[in-house]
């Protein structure tokens, strides 16, 4: 038994430690079994699910940029029916809470997805993806408009008794107003940030490096953007935040907790070292022990309290 308390809550969802995965970087979890003890994670956030199967975008879908990766997958997935019938029961066997990321091309689809997943006891929470930069409709087009974010959130809440997390896009001028809209819509938590819209050029071929032209930047390159958004948003809303963006080590994770995140998500970090999630779980706990904390709650948002005033001189 752990000497320190590491459990956190996102609405009614209790995570035994503050570590989950970023949707789309961990498959359903099953693909990672060889490398990760899935029982050790606070929650598994699975690949985005849509009503119908999606085959995704043109290749190339991924290219590396300095300390980052630019991707444009396009929500490839087998559709919610296959997910529920074939994948979910296998993941549920690990008895770790499952957060299902849902994405629609129009608002009503979020309600339908929530309705379908409501029947599944193995689903612990829903994560409404209103921030995918790589699909033509839905996704980020919804997540950049506070009214639409409010509508999506409210609709999902109406169709679900499960905790609802809204995954926000960083590609907005004012993240706080979007976060507040989700909170007003009834969100139990927020997940930020999704990837940052970017472009890479293939100099040899003299054209954009990705088949979809633009893509979402992730990895350590976006960590400061994510930290800033978590820091500002966590002070402005009452609901908990799952912070993510460039976390590749436990130190990165502790920084997000200090910035005000209640939990953290590991994304691109899984590609560098498939055991990153477990190392972050252990690292956070060891940090708490080494620094005399007996509860992870003691460091959540601690950076605000210690911030110095920003006056000149």
């Amino acid at each position: 038994m752990s000497k320190v308390k590491t459990a956190v809550k996102i609405g009614a969802l209790t995570m035994k430690n503050p570590v989950t995965t970023a949707s789309g970087t961990f498959g359903s979890g099953l693909e990672m079994r060889e490398y990760v003890d899935l029982r050790k994670l606070g929650a598994i956030t699975v690949k985005g699910t849509t009503l119908e199967p999606r085959s995704g975008n043109l290749l190339p879908r991924c290219t590396e940029t300095p300390s980052g990766t630019l991707n444009s997958i396009g929500l490839e997935n087998p559709g919610v029916d296959v997910f529920v019938a074939d994948i979910l029961p296998q993941v549920a066997a690990y008895e770790t809470p499952i957060i299902v990321n849902i994405a629609g091309s129009e608002i009503t689809e979020y309600g339908r997805l929530a309705e379908i997943l409501e029947k599944e006891a193995a689903v612990s929470a829903l994560e409404a993806n209103v921030s995918c930069p790589n699909v033509k409709s839905g996704g980020m087009a919804l997540g950049t408009d506070p009214d639409l974010v409010y509508q999506v959130t409210k609709l999902v809440k109406e169709h679900s008794s499960k905790p609802v997390i809204v995954k926000l896009s960083p590609n907005v001028t004012d993240i706080v107003s979007i976060a507040k809209a989700a909170a007003e819509g009834g969100a139990d938590g927020l997940n930020l940030i999704n990837s940052v819209l970017g472009l890479a050029i293939d100099m040899e071929k003299k054209r954009p490096a990705l088949g979809n032209i633009v893509g979402g930047l992730s990895g350590p390159a976006i960590k400061p953007i994510a930290l800033r958004m978590v820091y500002q948003t966590a002070q402005a809303v009452e609901i908990p935040i799952i912070g993510l963006g460039g976390i590749v080590s436990w130190q990165d994770a502790v920084e997000f907790l200090m910035a005000g995140a209640t939990a953290v998500g590991i994304g691109t970090g899984n590609f560098l070292d498939p055991a990153t999630t477990m190392k972050v779980v252990d690292g956070i706990e060891q940090y708490l022990i080494d620094n005399g904390y007996d509860d992870v709650q003691d460091i959540i948002g601690i950076a605000w309290k210690n911030q110095r005033d920003g006056k000149d001189g």
């Binding site: 490398y35 085959s55 290749l59 991924c62 997958i73 490839e76 590609f271």
Partner: peptide, 23 residues
């Protein structure tokens, strides 16, 4: 070969279409 993100089957960066319509 294809550009890969993970090599583990989780990121779907290298997903490529088959003749049967499945990736």
């Amino acid at each position: 070969e294809a550009n890969m993100g993970c090599g583990l089957g989780v990121c779907l960066s290298c997903s490529t279409p088959g003749k049967d319509g499945k990736n």
